[in-house]
Design a protein around this nucleic acid. Sequence first.
RNA 1: GCCUCGGUGGCUUAGCCUGGUAUAGCGGCUGACUUGUAAUCAGCAGGUCGGGGGUUCAAAGCCCCCCCGGGGCUCCA
Length: 633
Amino acid sequence: MDNIYISFKYSIFGIVMRILALHSDFIKYEVTKKTKFAEEIDESMKGGQMDECLAVFTSVEKEDMTDMDLLVAEASKAVREIAEQVKVDSIFIYPYVHLSSNPSDPEFAKAFFPLFEAELSKDFKVKRSPFGYYKAFNVSCKGHPLSELSREIHISKKEEKEVVSEALASEARIRPQWHIMTPDGDLVDVADYDFKGRENLKKFANYEISGSRAADKEPPHVEMMKKLELVDYEPGSDSGNLRWYPKGAMIKRLLEQKASEVIQKYGGMEVETPIMYDFEHPKLSRYLHRFPARQYTVISGDNKFFLRFAACFGQYLIKHDMTISYRDLPLGLYELTHFSFRREQKGELSGLRRLRAFTMPDMHTLVRDMDSAKQEFINQYRESIKWMNGLGVNFEAGIRFVKEFFEENKDFVKQLVRELGRPVLIEMWDERPFYFVMKFEFNFVDAIDKASALSTVQIDIENTERFDISYTDENGDQKHPLMLHASIPGAIERNVYALLEHAHMESMKGKKPMLPLWLSPTQLRLIPINEGLASKCKEISEAFPGIRVDIDDRSESLAKRIRDAEKEWVPYIVVVGDKELQSGELAVRERASGEQVKMTSSELAEKIWAETKGMPFRALPLPMLVSRRPRFR
RNA sequence: GCCUCGGUGGCUUAGCCUGGUAUAGCGGCUGACUUGUAAUCAGCAGGUCGGGGGUUCAAAGCCCCCCCGGGGCUCCA
């Protein structure tokens, strides 16, 4: 998922352009000799003069080459400020490479100056001398205190400037319309909708529309993830990069495994792509600079790379090089990203909900036309519903599109809502600020009423063209397909977050918090009544293949060990004493029901197998004997 | 990035306002106890009070900068 277009501001650093501005009575120049980088000029530019002006001597630095638009904007802004200070309305631009010790490529600078001139021409009378010539010049500088001003435009890591992207600017202009669509297909203005019985939908809608962020508490999952020794902050890294302890790592791996199974079964072909990409890569650079996301940058020798924020890049580049027939469509590539990196603002980071490094199952599917796009969309929508139901947490759907698309595809939208069988939040835009015409997400509403997207699918109508991805149709013609972006589970960390928040909400209702059985680090705990029976427990545990069984053989009181097992959310607890050994019947303390049920070990094993059927399995993440376990925090 | 609150043994925490090198519980270790469904008892060890700088005879406590975390703003595939 690379839905980054949506209203990110963006920042590129490393701009170090140099400007020397002289308030002059006049400046006069004459071309003496052409260099091999010279721009094409006519006679009129071979010499020139300007009176009462600001003479702006400028060099373009190597580091400036990351973003032309930003460079032009920043340079113009700086010159404008100076011109206003000294009150001139004429500006003379003089390309002067000698200001620089590390100039940019000539081709880049050559392209820069006309743009710079055009930008300043909006507010000033502008002339410039040509790029790529030796010139003789004569300048008469006024002597007043402001007459000589130099600027180094620095946009470094510490002082980033933000530029509002096109996408953001248009989004700000567009006022979305909000509706609720009922399962019957009625479209109701959100203000007129009666949310009775749909409290989570109301919270989600409020969260989206009003932007109200009322939470004054820390999200409950943060304490849980630490207390259960699942995940923790890692102060030795950047914020939002976490450490996972054995139990948490196991849970995460199981979710990842399940996600990959679902997506591969669906048809996504698994690939693996690099986590960093060249800033100067010809295909990516233009695109990247239009991509308003905050990135991590990696400097390696003289090269600069950015860390991927989704699997898109690698998959686009593979698809660009592929030979694809219309017979191969729909064609999905899939990668589970370890990791996707986004340098989110610090204030945005929150536990497992919002991170700077996260794991995302990301699939991109090529389809030939809008009809098959819609078919794929609904298939992926159904997979997402299955995923969310399997996770067992609440979710509310948001479906968003361009109004025109909605008008043309009303029945399709109604079908989506009908299949889900519950009212859905609808957002419509008059124009299309993004690369997609339509998307949905399933949002989880947490214990402090924050909504977060998990599953999401979008129909992208721009990027195959931008990346020159094409297929051959029946007539042998090259066509650009459409593309769906899908993350059926959403970020894996966010799945863990949802499970923990869900458990917390259940416990607020008086139930015991727990994880789904297939994700419980310990599924069955045996507690010997005294230390001598630990070896008997070992024997009993052998009746539970494919089940995570451990044994609390510590020399603690029985009550203490039961309490500890409860605190660890162990779903099945069995105390083993002489009674059990003689009768062969176990008194199973069942967390879900809160009851104690008698059954044989084979009955219990059958029960657990049945409850975890179809789910992946991993072995115990810790030593089987609880007495042998270290503490992680 | 901005505003705001916080950071004290592994964890949770008292002390901070009103400066005089720190409190308790859990956990760990040692020993006793050998347990029938949510905390057995005793002893011992463990602290650069987030980091750095400043003020002071003296700083966990006051001042400044930084790091990390929470909440809010901005923002939010």
